[in-house]
Structure formats: structure tokens, C-alpha cells
Amino acid sequence: MALQSLDIKRRSATTTPSPSQRQTQEVLKLIDVSKCIGCKACQVACMEWNDTRDAIGANHGVYDNPMDLTENSWTVMRYAELELEQGKLEWLIRKDGCMHCAEPGCLKACPAPGAVVQYSNGIVDFHEENCIGCGYCITGCPFNIPRLSKKDSKVYKCTLCSDRVAAGLEPACVKTCPTGAIVFGSKEDMIRHAEERVVDLKSRGFANAGIYNPQGVGGTHVIYVLQHADRPEVYCGLPRNPSIGPMVELWKGAAKPLASLGLAMVVAGAAFHYVTKGPNEVSAEIEKEFEDEK
């Protein structure tokens, strides 16, 4: 949920134009995994800013806690111990959360008008008051990010602090990150910074260092610098070629004109019905039933 409303690029399940009077710069959050010390300050800052609190859990034999994203934990650190080279241990710690795709699968999948929006700055935001709790966005997300709340049947995820960004601030996780592993700025600046980081990593022996900015979803507004960009899956299952699922593509792609046609037919049918039969009247009996149900 956000303060923004004047600079929306697109909205879920909406055919009318979106407000676009204000144009904002495209933003990007860069997570440099090679600088991350796994301190979880970003997890704390996220909960503090958004005033959410997860339950106090248990230890499950790993450092990860909470163990997964939840409707209250919109970001978590994921820890992977790997020996990619014989005898050379690496502890790869990745901050997981919404990637804010340029082509958001959640938005495409969402049938609730205006429940998912994409601002012109690239942030993909959920407007929970419009959410119908169907969970299609969860199916539509190639990164398995949104989480459905049992309390209110709404779906929650990282907003990239769209409220802070709208007011000219950086996201809370960026503000708190002690090592500068998470940085935020214009897309252009961040890509340049990421490229510099890759040069540094290559000079330190990471021949396959690179940027994770997957094109299968049109690029993302959260990108990673990875030591092993050739093997994103070693970072606790970061997908190699994420894309929007075929069902969502079908529903919003090929099927959409058909659906629109169907919708038009319904409208035409209704008009025909009105012309030929007159307006529908609700009988007093049915109205009473409604009242009783209330």
C-alpha cells in the first residue's frame, strides 16, 4: 500500500487508463551478495518500518529465521553453505523478497481490479483493500514471493517501501544496511555501480561474477550482484530463467481477447435483454432473503 497515485503505469484487471500525470524516474534496488554479512538488520528494519511482527519461532538447525517469507516478514535472509571448489567453503547469504519485475506475473494474474499496481518508477505494489484473496498472484509469481494472510485473506509482500520512496527516502532495508550491500537509486546509477562491483569481484578471483537482472520477466527493479552469476540456483534456489507461468500467460495472453469478446457478448446480451424484456426487477422475496443474510 502506498501514498502514490499520480504515476501508475498499470493496474491489475483494469481497462481504463491509469493516472499518469506525474512521471517519476525508474528506480532500482541493488543487493550486492558479496558485501552481505547476513546480519538481518534489513529484516528488522522492514518489520519496524511497516509495523509488522512475526511470531517468535524456533531454531530449525540453521541460521535462517523466520524460516520463510510470511505476511509479516516481507524479506528474509537465506543462508547457503557451499564448496563449489574443492576445499573452498563459501557462505552465500541472499536477501530474498519481491524482485519488482518489469513484467510482473502477479499483476498479470490478478483478477481483482487495482489490487496490484505498477508505478512508473517500476515498483510493483499490492493495494490490499482491493485484494480478493484468490491467490492468483502467488501462482503468477516466478519467485514465490507473495504470502496470503490467514487473518484477513489478503496477500502481502515487499512494497520496496513505495511510501518512503514517494517521499524521497530510500527503502528501510537500504537505510539500515551497515555494509552498503543494499543500495538504491536510479536504474542507470545502480546498473553502473553493479558493473563496477563485478569488475572488483572478477579481480578477486570470481571469474563468473555478474549481475542478476533476468530478462524473462523484462528485467527487475531489484537486482543482485552475484559471485557466481552463471549459477544463480546456488543462492538458495534463485531461478536461472524466471518467467511468467504458462497458465498466467494463457489467461492474460491468448485467452484475454477471447475473454474480452466473451465480456462484450455478455454486455450485448444484457442490452438485448433490456431492450426486449425490460429491466430486471428483484422480487421482494429475494430482497428479504438478502436482508436476513446480513
Partner: peptide, 23 residues
């Protein structure tokens, strides 16, 4: 551990969420 400060922060909820249990 980075999530806690000595024996103080087990009294604060956010730190307790980050590392809830002894290991």
C-alpha cells in the same frame, strides 16, 4: 551472534524473532 546483544536483547521482540532459540 549478530542478532543479539549479550543477555539484553532476548527481552526485545524483534531480536527474539531473528534468533528465537538457543543452539
Amino acid at each position: 551472534l549478530t542478532e543479539h546483544f549479550h543477555f539484553w536483547t532476548k527481552h526485545t521482540r524483534l531480536s527474539a524473532i531473528m534468533q528465537p532459540e538457543q543452539f
